[in-house]
Each structure stands twice: as structure tokens, then as C-alpha cells.
Computed example of a mutant assay.
Amino acid sequence: MSEQVSTNREATRRRLTEKQADTVDRLTAAAVEVLSREGYPGTTIRLVAAAAGVGTATAYTYFSSKEHLIAEVFWRRLVAAPPVRVDEADRVAHVVAVLRQVSMLVADEPALAGAVSSALLGADPDVKHLRVCIGIEIRRRLGEALGSGEQETIAILEVLYSGALLHGGMGHLSYEQVADLLEACARRLLG
């Protein structure tokens, strides 16, 4: 089982002291606030830094771009989500619960949801790193649900998940519809 990253002690760029971790926490919280007020196009590192009460240069110490900052918000929510507990030993129910949990992480925040989709498509090296971390974490959770010998099935579920969330982020589906579609796909795939 892989070790989870402590979201209050480590960012994607370096290990953090307690004071630095507090600054990163304030920046990620401010990013959500600014996104809800300004939308993705109007959100800048400068606005987020001001909302967090830190200098712009300080914000850039931790985040290379707004895409990196927004991807970090999603990453933190993902690793902070508790493990899915399914009462029954039904692996399909476990997979469905994992997919539903991950797809609903930003469902209640439309501005953040759309921003996450855009941000994760970015070319920033720090975003690329987070995409890998996010993919590994989702793969780990699906592996726990299915078992380690199901790599092809996990790969198919990852593609389904990525495509469905992209549709949600673009506004073609609500996140509830994304979760429902993923459930239907998983049930069909897993029989």
C-alpha cells in the first residue's frame, strides 16, 4: 500500500515548515474563494495572494502558475478524502463507491470544478507532476477495490473516469450525472 502524502506538510514543489504549510493552506483556500468570485479566467496568482494575505512573490515561491495552484487544490482534496468503506465484500460496489467519491470531490463548487478540468490539462511541469500523483492515487484506490491483478480493467476505468470528469468540467454533464454514468459503465464493465 502506498504512503499518502501529508497535505499540510508537503506541497508539490518541496517539504514545508509549519509556517510555510500555513501559507500554502491559506493560498489554496483563497484560490477557491477567488475562483468562486472571479471565475477561472479572472483568477490570478496576484488576486489569490492578496486574498490569502501574502505577497505575490511569496505565492510564486509555492506555485508556478494558477493552473498549478488549482491542481494542488484538487490533489489536496483527493488525498484528504477518507478511504471508501463498503459494508459488503462486493468489488463492484467498492469500485462504484471509489469512482463516485472521486467524481464528487468538487461537485458542489462549479467554478472550482471547471477550473480543475482546465488546470489539469496545462503544460506546466508542476501540473504534469500533479497529474501523475492524482493518477497514481486514483489507480491505487481502484486497485484496492479490484485487486492487484486487474491492471487492464483499472486502465479502462481510468480512461472512463478521465473522460467523464472532462465532460463534467466542460459543463456537458452535472457531477451527479458523471457519477451515475461512471457507475453504469463500471457495472457493465465488471458484470
Rank of each mutant, 00 (worst) to 15 (best):
V84E: 06
N8V: 05
F63W: 12
G149P: 01
M1K: 04
T28R: 04
A93T: 11
L35R: 00
L189H: 12
I138Q: 15
A97Q: 07
G147K: 07
A52N: 07
R15T: 14
E33D: 10
R139E: 10
H172G: 03
L182S: 05
S64P: 06
V32T: 15
T17D: 02
V98K: 09
G122E: 14
V24L: 10
P82N: 14
H129D: 01
S118C: 06
E38Y: 05
I136W: 08
G147E: 00
R131V: 08
E109Y: 00
V84W: 01
E137N: 14
V106S: 08
A50S: 10
Q177F: 01
G122S: 15
E150W: 05
I70M: 12
M170W: 14
H129P: 00
Y175P: 08
S2M: 09
V32P: 11
S174W: 09
A49P: 01
E88C: 12
G143K: 01
E18H: 06
H94E: 04
A11N: 15
E72G: 00
L166A: 12
K66C: 09
E72R: 00
G55S: 14
D22V: 12
S103W: 03
L189E: 12
L47H: 11
L182F: 03
D108A: 14
S64G: 15
T44N: 13
H167Q: 15
A11I: 06
I134P: 02
M104D: 02
